[in-house]
Amino acid sequence: MRRLVAACLTATVLTGCGGVGADDPLQVTDTLTAAEPARAPDQPARPAGTVVPAPPTALSAFLPGASTLATAHERTVSLYDARDLRRAPRTVRLPAAPATLRATPDGKLLAAQPDADLVARIDPATGTAEQLRYPGRPLDAALVPGGLAVALEATGSVALPGGKQATGFKRPAELVELGGRLHVLDVLATSLTPVDPATGEKEPALRAGTGATHVAADRYDRVLAVDTRGQELLAFATDPLIMKQRYPVPGAPFALAYDPGRDLAWITLTASNELVGYDVAGGEPREVHRVPTVRQPNSAAVDPATGAVFVASATGAGMQVVTP
Rank of each mutant, 00 (worst) to 15 (best):
T210W: 11
A11S: 13
T76M: 12
A225C: 13
A166Y: 10
L269E: 15
R90G: 09
L94R: 03
T238M: 05
A271N: 05
R102I: 07
V249H: 02
I267R: 09
P64E: 15
A112Q: 05
L182S: 07
G19N: 04
S157P: 10
T29C: 04
A208Q: 08
P95G: 00
L241R: 01
P44F: 13
R137L: 08
E287D: 13
D218Q: 06
R86T: 13
A125R: 10
A97N: 08
D227V: 06
H183R: 08
H214P: 00
A166D: 07
A40M: 00
P145S: 15
V294W: 07
D84S: 14
K170V: 14
I122A: 06
V288N: 09
T33H: 09
P56D: 06
V309T: 15
R86F: 08
T50C: 01
E177Q: 07
G19I: 00
T213C: 01
V13I: 08
D263N: 15
A281Y: 14
R290S: 14
P25N: 10
P194R: 09
G136S: 01
L109G: 06
G21D: 15
V176R: 09
R219V: 11
T293R: 11
V276R: 15
D140F: 02
R222L: 02
A38I: 03
V184K: 05
R3M: 02
D23I: 00
L182M: 05
G107E: 09
L4F: 01
A154Q: 14
T293C: 11
S60G: 09
V92C: 03
A45F: 02
A154I: 07
A314P: 01
L132T: 08
L132K: 03
L224G: 09
A54D: 12
A82G: 02
V176S: 12
A300N: 09
P56L: 00
V144A: 10
R262K: 14
L152M: 14
L192A: 03
K244M: 10
V223R: 14
A159Y: 04
G283E: 15
S60L: 06
A99G: 07
T100C: 03
T193Y: 09
A205C: 01
D221H: 15
V184W: 04
F62N: 04
R219Y: 02
V184L: 05
A70C: 11
Y220A: 08
V280Q: 11
A154N: 02
L85Y: 06
R121C: 12
G16F: 11
E153L: 05
C8D: 04
P204Y: 04
S78L: 11
R295M: 03
D259G: 04
G107A: 04
K244P: 01
Y247H: 00
P135H: 01
P161H: 11
V119E: 10
L85S: 08
L32G: 01
A7V: 12
A154T: 13
P64H: 05
A217P: 10
V5M: 10
P135N: 10
T213I: 05
R181Y: 11
G277Q: 14
P260M: 10
R133D: 15
D303S: 10
